[in-house]
Every structure is written in structure tokens, then in C-alpha cells.
């Protein structure tokens, strides 16, 4: 993909505290944001085409809302709260408002992330209590049955995500590892461990094939991993050191054009591009937006339907929308 710049096309204000996460609905029409002010905000394009607030869900949780995960095919999302609850919200097609349709309890303390599998039938959550839970969602999204409590991490689990091509689950932790889980012999079990970060692994993102993974860590490194073909084994492909000057809090790998965006504690957004030299594949920094936010960039997310569009948020309480040009 050819591009010269990443241009900020909208600065969305409204959150009163740090914004932890931004996420796009499956159809790319709604952007969610959430954070320290306990609210969830939804943004969409107004009649004139400008991005504006579409809905505010104040006091969505009793404490920080850490992340929002959109269902892969429906206008439904899960929100992970520091109040130990995962809440499920569904759009009411008549009023077009989002309603809290389920509250999932089970974790002992802060829920840090939630993720759906590719069909939207499974939901995974993770917490400071070191565990990852896998839930089966009822068709009406009102009921969630626990299929497994996955123990293995030695410390807080910061992030969970399913492989986009199959139902294997990955989790990133304060214990510096990424672990892989799968449904084997009728139960969810750990099937692999990715070791390479020297500190907390904050976030991860798959490429479109599901055979490569990018992870960002508190060690300021971005690591690319590749699956050994036909196995559950993952090998480090490349460690990008020296590019980021503070922790890498967020990674988003575009499923359409393949650019990898990172959000960093040095206030910058960077884009990494895959280059090929014969058989040799490597990733290089292609562009940097310094001072993308006036504080840590906590999250970056490519729009799933508009490939050139990226959303970001930060400790400056602001959400931004960017366009590749």
C-alpha cells in the first residue's frame, strides 16, 4: 500500500479521563471508546459525514472500563471492567440505542480484556486474577455458560484474542509470556507458550492468515511471530528493538493491506511495513506520527471496512481518527 502521511481527520472529545481503548464495530460504522471515567462512548458519522458522538453510556461500569470487544457479525459488544464484571450490550433495532443485556461475573478482580471468536459463539475474558475464562454465548446474548477457567499465567493477564481463522485462543501477560490455548480432548488447555519479551506483554494482533502474530511489550519491543506450518508451534520471526522509546501498549495488524500500527507510551503512532528480499521477510518502520496524542497512546485500531482509516486514543482523554494518504 502506498501512502505519504497519516492525517488526523477528527479529534473526538468528551471523555473526562484517560481513554484506554477504541474498537470498531464489525461493519466499521461505529467506533467505541472507554476508559477511566467509567463510560463507554460510541461515535459515528453524522448526516454531513463528520464524526460525532452517537451515544454515551455513562457509568457503564462501577470502575474503569478497560476494553470493548465487538461481536464479529452483530451490533453487540462486550465491555471489560475493573469492577470484575464483563457487560454485554446490544443495539435495540427500534430505538437504535445500546442496552445492557447481560452481566457476566466470575473473575475475582479487574477484567482487563474480552474477545470473541470468529463465529461470535465464544467469548474469552482475562483478569488480574491470572485466569482466562472461555464462555459460550447463547444466541440471544442473554446467557453465558463458562466452558473453562484457564490457569497457567503466573501474573495478571493483560489481553486475550482468538485466532481469526480457527478457535485457538492467545493471552498476553504481566508474566512476560504469551500463551496459546485450544479445545483438546473435550477441555480447554494450554498448548503453547511464546517467550521473547523481557517484560509485560500489553497487546497482540494477528495478520489476516492467522499464521503470524505481532506483540507489543513493556520492554519497548514489537515482536513478530510465525506459526510453524501445520503445528501449534510459534517461532519468533523478528524482534523490532530500538524503534519505540517507551512501552508498546497497542498493536493493530490490518487484515486488508497488512500495515501494522502501534500505539506507544512515547505519544507516537508508528506504522510498520512488511518487506521481502527473496525468501527473507522482515518488517520495517514506515512512518511515524510523533505527538499523535499529547500523552501515552493507549490503543490503535484499523477500521475493518475502510482500510485506510485508523482510530487511536490516549492518556490525553482524546479519541482521534486518522486517514492514510
Amino acid at each position: 500500500m502506498l501512502y505519504d502521511t497519516l492525517e488526523c481527520i477528527a479529534t473526538l472529545e468528551g471523555h473526562k479521563e484517560r481513554v484506554w481503548n477504541v474498537a470498531w464495530s464489525h461493519d466499521g460504522t461505529v467506533l467505541s471508546s472507554c476508559g477511566g471515567d467509567r463510560s463507554i462512548r460510541l461515535w459515528s458519522r453524522g448526516a454531513g459525514g463528520a464524526w460525532a458522538s452517537a451515544c454515551v453510556l455513562p457509568e457503564a461500569h462501577a470502575r474503569t472500563v478497560r476494553r470493548v470487544a465487538w461481536h464479529p457479525t452483530r451490533h453487540v459488544f462486550a465491555a471489560a471492567g475493573f469492577d470484575a464484571i464483563t457487560s454485554i450490550w446490544e443495539r435495540n433495532d427500534i430505538s437504535a440505542e445500546y442496552e445492557n443485556v447481560a452481566q457476566i461475573e466470575g473473575h475475582e478482580n479487574e477484567v482487563k480484556c474480552a474477545a470473541w471468536n470468529r463465529s461470535g459463539e465464544l467469548l474469552a475474558t482475562c483478569s488480574r486474577d491470572k485466569s482466562v475464562w472461555v464462555w459460550a454465548a447463547a444466541e440471544d446474548m442473554r446467557d453465558f455458560e463458562c466452558l473453562g477457567v484457564l490457569q497457567g499465567h503466573m501474573q495478571d493477564v493483560k489481553c486475550v484474542l482468538f485466532n481469526p481463522r480457527e478457535d485457538t485462543l492467545f493471552s498476553c501477560s504481566y508474566d512476560d509470556t504469551v500463551r496459546q490455548w485450544a479445545h483438546v480432548d473435550d477441555e480447554w488447555a494450554e498448548v503453547g507458550k511464546l517467550e521473547g519479551h523481557a517484560s509485560t506483554v500489553w497487546d497482540a494482533s494477528f495478520d489476516a492468515s492467522g499464521n503470524r502474530l505481532a506483540t507489543g511489550g513493556d520492554d519497548k519491543n514489537l515482536i513478530f511471530w510465525k506459526r510453524v506450518e501445520g503445528t501449534n508451534e510459534w517461532k519468533m520471526l523478528q524482534k523490532v528493538e530500538g524503534a519505540h522509546t517507551r512501552p508498546v501498549f497497542s498493536v493493530s495488524w490490518s487484515k486488508s493491506h497488512g500495515l501494522i500500527a502501534t500505539g506507544c507510551g512515547d505519544d507516537s503512532i508508528r506504522l510498520f511495513v512488511e518487506t521481502r528480499d527473496g525468501e527473507e521477510v522482515s518488517f520495517k518502520q514506515g512512518l511515524i506520527v510523533e505527538k499523535a496524542h499529547n500523552a501515552d497512546v493507549n490503543c490503535v485500531a484499523w477500521n475493518p471496512r475502510v482500510p485506510s482509516m485508523l482510530a487511536s486514543c490516549g492518556d490525553d482523554n482524546v479519541v482521534k481518527i486518522w486517514q492514510l494518504r
Partner: peptide, 15 residues
């Protein structure tokens, strides 16, 4: 050191 510099843990502690 790790705990004192993890902003997510600090944010949770302050709640």
C-alpha cells in the same frame, strides 16, 4: 519496580 511502573496496575490501585 515493575509494579510501580505499570500504569494499569496503578490506575486500578487508585480506584
Amino acid at each position: 519496580n515493575k509494579q510501580l511502573n505499570d500504569k494499569e496496575r496503578i490506575a486500578a490501585a487508585m480506584e
